[in-house]
Write a protein that binds this DNA or RNA. Structure first.
Length: 583
RNA sequence: GCGCCCGUAGUGAAGUUGGCCUAUCACGCCUCCCUGUCACGGAGGAGAUCGCCGGUUCGAAUCCGGUCGGGCGCGCCA
């Protein structure tokens, strides 16, 4: 009979049981050996006496991480000998038989040491790293989250449908992973960046509500919050929905439940706010604001419209953030924040500190007293605070101050890990200036519905008017991380042609690039809307981690390499030949 | 592709204003001793030419150039 030993089970005292696991530590007293045995549930102490000389002899040669099965009698530990640090600490198992199921070489890393090995080595020996209780728990928790998600989705009548992994290259979006076709010369499959087109085709197919915990593949450089290559989405779509609010309201309860019941955190607010893209950019300088702290951007363009200070006077936009207790920042620290500001496109970083009723600032001499008092009032700056300015084109000011707001919050420890702040950013611009700035382009993606319908697009004559069109498109943000993106889809072929035509694309172009979907839409496509949550990233934040690789069993490293499996790897010439590839 | 940071025994760190480094410490490993430990204890031992290549210098872990590897960020990316 196999037993696990997480829980102190004094009721088994006197029984002879069999336990299996790993040798966690061994304490050899010469004439008495203790072994802490470990499995996924915890530790139990085994005792080896020399009366059973054969078993004792085996125990003498046990080493860390040997895999053993031990049979023995459960005994209550004598008074004063209990170990309160382990769950089974009031008992021990006196071994009367042992079988070494496998040996272990000396470990290349010490998974159970306080000093954690470098991430590179942990990934190289991930199977050892996973033996750590924390990793064990993470994997269990992830499974638990998936289970909650499935239960929720099914309770809302969503049907799980799996969609192809061997799919098509998509013209928009990220770089694809391509797979050469053996049967069709010069042709390729692509791994899906998301099941986007398939789920829309399911809507056309009459599936009322679809969901999938879907693998998605993108060949883009990773980040701390972005895995290389592959990740999972909770992908969902609902037919006969023409208002994004229906989708958002559907998912609010799930995310709240995961934040509170599952992750044990507190919501910043029970009601999840909806903020327009424009408002988010103006107030927080980003489309994924962290609402756990304030420090909002304050508009000061008017205040400095006729100032002596040329930098402010001539700027299209002047804004500021008030950093509480900013007076405590050293010169060196301010320099490093200036560096960050410059990386975001700022020319420099002007600031003004209010301390001991004095105004300290390199730019104070350019500002009038009334300007200073007005900015103090508008920013709410008090004694001890520092106000940091951005003065440039509006987009640059927002980017710079948005980034600084985040950096200051980190510096001053304003991101409470026990709080989850959720919001929906809505009304993304349908069109925006292309990178070169010379022409219009789609804001997010071309498949969402312009709010107000196609009439809005037709009425927009000038660039200005076109830029003010918003898409019924929305992102959910959790503590500054974008965890979901969705939209009401454009399900009408005619309308799709028109929104592309605004940018100068012909009907033929649209047909060629998005043929399958357009074609399907010609045969009675219902209105539909949906969204997709990045579950790895969401899980990371719920677990309080700041590196997404910590919550995934086998992630690639920053160079897209699996250092354990050695992928990507070379393949046989014969394999390449069969695929028509020659090196 | 670009910027910043990092690379010292198996692991984690110290040393990095050039010499006292014949490279320090902890954990781990090996041998021996030990019958109540639980981070067991005790005695002893092995293990690193300081990522790699080149340069400066009487002398380089330390300075310079290059290169490789890793991390973070930008570009990119729902």
């Amino acid at each position: 009979m196999e037993r696990i030993f997480a829980i102190d089970t004094p009721k088994h005292v006197g029984e002879t049981i069999s336990v299996s696991g790993w040798v966690h530590t061994r304490r050899d007293h010469g004439g008495l050996i203790f072994v802490d045995m470990r499995d996924h549930t915890g530790l139990v102490q085994l005792v080896f006496n020399p009366d059973n000389i054969d078993v004792f002899g085996v125990a003498e040669h046990l080493r860390d991480e040997f895999v053993v099965r031990v049979e023995g009698e459960v005994k209550a530990r004598a008074e004063g000998l209990a170990n309160p640090n382990i769950d089974s600490g009031s008992i021990e198992i006196v071994a009367n038989n042992i079988e070494v199921l496998n040996r272990s070489e000396t470990l290349p890393i010490q998974p159970f040491s306080d000093a954690q090995a470098s991430e590179d080595l942990r990934l190289r020996y991930r199977y050892l790293d996973i033996r750590r209780p924390k990793m064990q728990r993470t994997l269990e928790r992830r499974a638990e989250m998936f289970s909650i998600i499935r239960e929720f989705m099914e309770s809302k009548d969503f049907t799980e449908v799996t969609t192809p992994i061997l799919a098509n290259s998509s013209p928009e979006g990220a770089r694809d992973f391509l797979i050469p076709s053996r049967l069709h010369e010069d042709k390729y499959y692509a791994l899906p960046q998301a099941p986007q087109q398939f789920k829309q085709l399911l809507m056309v197919g009459g599936v009322p509500r679809y969901y999938q915990l879907a693998a998605c593949f993108r060949d883009e450089d990773p980040r701390a919050d972005r895995l290389y290559g592959e990740f999972y989405q909770l992908d969902a779509e609902m037919s006969f929905v023409d208002d994004g609010e229906v989708v958002r309201a559907t998912f609010d309860p799930l995310i709240k439940k995961l934040s509170t019941e599952f992750a044990g955190k507190k919501l910043l607010s029970e009601d999840i706010p909806r903020i327009s893209y424009n408002e988010a950019m103006e107030r927080f300088g980003t489309d994924k604001p962290d609402l756990r702290f304030g420090m909002e951007l304050v508009e000061l363009t008017e205040v400095f419209s006729s100032t002596e200070f040329g930098v402010f006077k001539n700027a299209e936009c002047v804004k500021a953030i008030c950093v509480k207790n900013g007076a405590s920042l050293s010169r060196k620290q301010i320099d490093s924040f200036t560096e960050i500001a410059k990386n975001e496109g700022a020319g420099g970083l002007a600031y003004i500190t209010f301390e001991n009723s004095e105004v300290k600032s390199p730019i104070a001499k350019f500002l009038s007293e009334s300007e200073i008092s007005e900015l103090k009032e508008k920013t709410g700056a008090e004694d001890g605070d520092t106000v940091f300015f951005g003065a440039d084109r509006r987009s640059v000011v927002n980017a710079v101050l948005g980034r600084l707001r985040n950096e200051f919050a980190t510096h001053f420890d304003m991101k409470d890990p026990n709080i989850i702040a959720l919001l929906w950013v809505v009304d993304f611009p349908f069109y925006e200036w292309s990178e070169s700035g010379s022409k219009l382009d789609f804001g997010h993606n071309p498949f969402s519905m312009p709010k107000g319908g196609i009439g809005t697009v037709r009425e927009a004559k000038t660039d200005e008017e076109k830029l003010s069109i918003v898409a019924d498109q929305y992102d959910m943000v959790m503590n500054g991380y974008e965890i979901c993106s969705g939209g009401v889809r454009n399900h009408s072929p005619e309308t799709l042609y028109e929104v592309f035509a605004v940018l100068g694309f012909s009907k033929e172009y649209v047909e060629e690039k998005f043929g399958a979907m357009i074609n399907a839409f010609k045969y009675g496509a219902p209105p539909h809307a949906g969204c997709a949550f990045g579950v790895d990233r969401m899980f990371m934040e719920l677990m309080g981690e700041d590196n997404i690789r910590e919550v995934v069993a086998f992630p690639k490293n920053g160079s897209g390499v699996d250092v354990m499996m050695n992928s990507p790897s070379l393949v046989d010439e014969a394999q390449k030949k069969e695929l028509g590839l020659f090196s």
